[in-house]
Design a protein around this nucleic acid. Sequence first.
DNA 1: TGCCAGGCCTTCC
DNA 2: GGAAGGCATGGC
Length: 281
Amino acid sequence: MNEISIKTDCFNLKYTLECGQCFRWSKEGDYYIGVIKDRVLKVRQEGNLLYIQSNNYDNLESIVKEYFELEKDYKSIEDRIEKVDEYVCKALKNTSGLRHLNQDFFETIISYIISANNNIPRISKSVNEISKRYGTKVKLDNKEYYLFPTPQQLKNVSIQEYRDCGVGFRDKYIYDTVQKIANNQIELDSMKDMQTDELKKELLELMGIGPKVADCILLFSCGRQEVFPIDVWVERVMKKLYFNDEKVSKKQILEYADKNFGKDAGIIQQHLFYNIRENLI
DNA sequence: TGCCAGGCCTTCC
DNA sequence: GGAAGGCATGGC
């Protein structure tokens, strides 16, 4: 059996893959199986070692390191946010090693358009269905998997065909966004170099992308760890911990996060999100 | 049956 | 510029 191993520090595979930031990983026994870029990965963690199998071993180590952000110094980040306050400290202790992934920009845009007013299992189902119908097939252990389709592969897909993938009313948003990207009305590659504010403004021009979805895209595929997406869960946990369960606007929550969480707001948000969903806090 | 889900768009004020 | 209503769909 072919397999590579990578030493990690301050990394927890389970928390990273099960915290709700990604939609294409499934658990089978000790392994998590997922499709990223041009290949399938089969990953397990033992202590601080990560073991990876794939259908393609070309450049595998650097692809894994890039995707899981293994070169980023999370130890320093965690040392810093541990001191923020008692709630953040408690949440961090529960889910230490949770990292933000460096996911594909286009896939993240489409996935988070689907996420609006939706739940995680159904988002996964829709993203997998789109991949199965329009993505390139790859094989591992004699089983078939599908890459997330490119903009060109989706160029001729109709609104109804998206609807058939279970995306509901978001069908027209996906169609509109795919058309703009496939027809080069917007250039994803150059966008990733923009300043965060400017990049967010560009994303907000796309149908189906509002403030929350834009923040998720910035956080999960553009490495902007200072943004603070507020969904129903984050609103719930912030209200509970910092506003005495009283009525509060998203603007107030955002101001609180900016002021108290600073440049690590996105990381803290992810710990709080995972903690409240798992009933840990 | 009714409510909820990693919200957004449209309409109305 | 902010508030209210509608929206597909499956799980509980």
